[in-house]
């Protein structure tokens, strides 16, 4: 199934976002959720098609090698048609290899569907339906334009270690809430690719690629009017090893901000993990808990 077939029936906004691998603008909650749902469907089917193309390519390579051996064995018998097998298998491997590369270029990062969508679903009941949610999302993942460093690093016990770091501030969502306050969620990932060259036990030169993904999510709460904060209380509720809390002056009011860090790892390809939505919403819950007197609406 082609990319165009997979987006058939999608909204124009979703098709545009898939093509640009980005989503921006001011959205009504339900509309945003619908478009994110369409992007999820596309990404899941695209990932399945990518896996299928890669597997077929690998099978074609394996069968190509086997048929080449068979062709050599049968060569003395004068059977010329046996060369057809390796030729066809090589052509198919190239074809599916190209398809695999093409599909990989359409891939969207999983973070929006693993973290942001469930968080939005849980926060939906507090979002002001009459106002729009401002969104800026870059769904392309670790691509060349985000590269901030590339080069050899201290190899340690390996022959050579090449490290590439990508900085990816992929998402920012500004939620207008029913009590007039504004909650902002910002997501930033640092993807590190480490290509190692080393000597195996039998003395052969080997290569291995490992990925890690450092992550920060920042939740900021700006009340509608100036409010006081239980700063000590908020700090006592943060995990000092991976969280940082601070009060911020923004848009004429004192707000509070909580930043939390994660690290994910992957072998071969970039890790698809994302912060659990529950932990992200939990940051906003704690910020609301630190606002003295509770929310305007609750009072």
């Amino acid at each position: 199934m082609s990319a165009a077939q997979r987006t058939k029936g999608f909204s124009p906004e979703a098709q545009e976002a898939i093509e640009a691998r980005a989503l921006t603008g001011a959205w009504e909650l339900r509309r945003l959720q619908r478009v994110l749902g369409e992007l999820t469907r596309f990404d899941e089917t695209n990932e399945a098609a990518t896996r299928k193309a890669r597997n077929i390519m690998i099978w074609c390579i394996v069968l190509g090698v086997v048929s080449l051996i068979v062709a050599f064995v049968s060569f003395d018998d004068g059977l010329m048609w046996v060369w057809l097998g390796p030729v066809v298998m090589t052509a198919l491997a190239v074809l599916f290899g190209m398809k695999w590369r093409g599909l990989k270029k359409l891939d969207l990062i999983d973070d929006f569907r693993k973290c942001l969508m469930p968080a939005l679903r849980d926060l939906a009941q507090d979002v002001d339906a009459g106002k729009r949610i401002r969104v800026r999302m870059d769904l392309a993942g670790p691509v060349e334009r985000k590269q901030i460093s590339h080069g050899n690093v201290d190899p340690g016990r390996y022959i050579q270690v090449k490290e590439t770091v990508y900085e990816d501030p992929w998402g920012e969502v500004r939620l207008p809430l029913v009590d007039g306050s504004t909650a902002t969620l910002e997501f930033k990932a640092w993807w590190t690719k480490r290509e190692r060259k080393y000597r195996g036990r039998a003395g052969k030169i080997k290569y291995k690629t490992k990925w890690s993904k450092k992550y920060s999510a920042t939740a900021t709460l700006l009340p509608a009017v100036e409010r006081s904060w239980d700063e000590e209380g908020l700090r006592s509720r943060t995990d000092g090893k991976r969280e940082k809390a601070q009060l911020v002056q923004k848009e004429g009011v004192t707000g509070a901000r909580l930043e939390r860090h994660w690290v994910f790892k992957g072998v071969g390809g970039p890790p698809g993990d994302a912060p659990p939505a529950k932990e992200v919403v939990g940051m906003l819950l704690r910020l609301f808990g630190a606002m003295r007197g509770g929310s305007e609406v609750a009072r």
């Binding site: 849980d122 926060l123 009941q125 507090d126 029913v178 009590d179 819950l285 609301f288 929310s295 609750a298």
Partner: peptide, 8 residues
């Protein structure tokens, strides 16, 4: 009582 962050 509605809401998650803002109970009302």
């Amino acid at each position: 009582q509605m809401g998650l962050l803002i109970l009302r």
